[in-house]
Design a protein around this nucleic acid. Structure first.
Length: 425
RNA sequence: GGAGAGCUGGCCGAGUGGUCGAAGGCGCAGCACUGGAAAUGCUGUAUAGGGGCAACUCUAUCGAGGGUUCGAAUCCCUCGCUCUCCGCCA
């Protein structure tokens, strides 16, 4: 969420920054609401001060012996009542305006960072670097072909169990998925990340706090009888881990590595990536998350990205890093590096991790602050996939495929999977 | 699902209508004492919003929302959550 004061005092900053994201907004009305709301607050608190004075006066007089039924007291009561009425009118107006303001504000995306490249579509994303030597051969299989041939996944029966876009991992496939989760968590915790296994059902406040609500309700699965949703990413519960808290500055940064299954409705993606492990309603992900001091979030962003890259490097998977342009930024992000892994079978780079710095955007929604001396300020939050497990498996299958149909796993994974070659069981 | 208890500051805990943002304790910070430390003593220590260059000041907040009252942490109503016991259950 954006700062209300910015709306009130410098709406032109918001307009120009959101303009960079391709969002044209007219803030004159909202600014007016914000200013009126402040005026009402001033009037109201002045009246309340007067009312408090009268209340005390009555108490004092009665205590010092004045007859409670005396003229003086009756007069004060009358004044008190008059003020009460005025206050309640002002209060109603003020509440209406604040809720209008807040409702609007919750629908605005974050302002892009100054360093974020300008652009109008994903074509304007800037490639920052590449790592590894991509396999570029003719006749390589795609991961879903390999997975079905080796019976690592059962797609058809998954439809019976649930519906399309769900997958059941079987045998070595299940083992590989489990091994990858463990491998990733081990890698991150060795670097000092605290491991987290959060609830995957989250309440409305949590989804609002990290930015998924109110705008993206149709992207999440919702429980019919409770205020609970299936989390679309561990970013949601981990943000709320410290919701409404003040974190002492000497504890920052807090770094978490959270494994969770993730659930997304993928509304509006009919027909895309219908086969295999790329786009599912349920997938596993290890998420990196930082609560950082506001002065150090830029460095933190470089570090969290490097920590996500470390997984790809350890798995010997070639990738490239994109600096997302303003048009491609997610709702809560100020700046994002996407990691795209090379899929030799598909012959394309595919997103496998998104590393974002959100500034104080989520912290304001979630009331997560830090304290130095007397002043409290909002922390900065960062998140990055480290990594999306299903897509990692897809990349491993395509990258490790052998002419004989088997799949060679990177050596780092052998202790986790128990073999270096996947072959028909 | 049934029955009961509770929800107060970072924590514990007092407070049943009047100057209470809230006693006391713990914790934390500063100062004093000390060669240094412990112990001790003193002082300070919530959040949000408004005004002010600042010192400071006003308003709100005792789970949430309504109500009674000149005045509510305290009384009334609704809701939420937590805990305990019983039932069920991995």
């Amino acid at each position: 969420m954006l700062d209300q004061r910015l709306v009130r005092d410098n709406p032109e900053i918001i307009a120009s920054q959101l303009g960079r994201r391709g969002k044209a907004v007219d803030l004159t009305k909202l600014q007016l609401i914000a200013q009126q709301q402040r005026n009402l607050e001033e009037q109201r608190s002045g009246l309340q001060a007067e009312g408090n004075r009268i209340g005390k006066e009555v108490g004092l007089q009665i205590k010092s012996g004045t007859d409670p039924k005396s003229e003086d007291i009756a007069n004060l009561r009358k004044q008190g009542n008059a003020i009460k009425q005025k206050v309640s009118v002002l209060e109603d107006e003020e509440k209406l305006l604040s809720s209008q303001l807040k409702d609007q504000l919750l629908t605005f995306p974050n302002l892009p960072s100054d360093d974020c490249p300008d652009g109008t579509s994903e074509n304007d994303n800037v490639e920052v670097r590449r790592w590894g030597a991509p396999r570029e051969e003719e006749g390589l299989e795609e991961h879903w072909q390999i997975a079905e041939r080796l019976k690592l996944i059962d797609t058809e029966r998954s439809v019976r169990i649930a519906q399309s876009r769900f997958v059941t991992l079987m045998g070595q496939g299940a083992r590989l998925e489990r091994g990858l989760i463990n491998f990733m968590l081990d890698l991150h915790t060795k670097k000092g990340y605290r491991e987290v296994l959060p609830p995957v059902l989250v309440n409305t406040a949590s989804l609002t706090g990290s930015g998924q609500l109110p705008k993206f309700a149709e992207e999440s699965f919702r429980c019919a009888d409770d205020d609970l949703w299936l989390t679309p990413t561990a970013e949601v519960p981990v943000t709320s881990l410290h919701r409404d808290e003040i974190i002492p500055a000497d504890q920052l940064p807090l770094r978490y590595a959270a494994y969770s299954p993730c659930f997304r409705r993928e509304a509006g993606s009919y027909g895309r990536d219908t086969r295999g492990l790329i786009r599912l309603h349920q997938f596993n992900k290890v998420e990196l998350y930082w609560f950082a001091h506001p002065d150090h979030s830029e460095e933190a962003h470089q570090q969290i990205t490097a920590d996500a890259e470390a997984v790809l490097q350890a798995l010997e998977l070639p990738y490239r890093v994109l600096d997302l342009c303003t048009a491609d930024l997610g709702f809560s992000a100020r700046r994002t590096y996407d990691l795209e892994v090379w899929l030799p079978g598909a012959g394309a780079y595919r997103e496998i991790s998104s590393c974002s710095v959100c500034g104080d955007f989520q912290a304001r929604r979630s009331a997560i602050r830090t304290k130095e001396g007397k002043s409290t300020k909002l922390v900065h939050t960062l998140n990055g996939s480290g990594l999306a497990v299903g897509r990692t498996m897809a990349a491993l299958l395509e990258t490790g495929q052998q002419p004989d149909g088997r799949v060679r796993l990177p050596s780092a994974l052998v202790p986790y999977v128990g073999c270096e070659l996947l072959q028909p069981e």
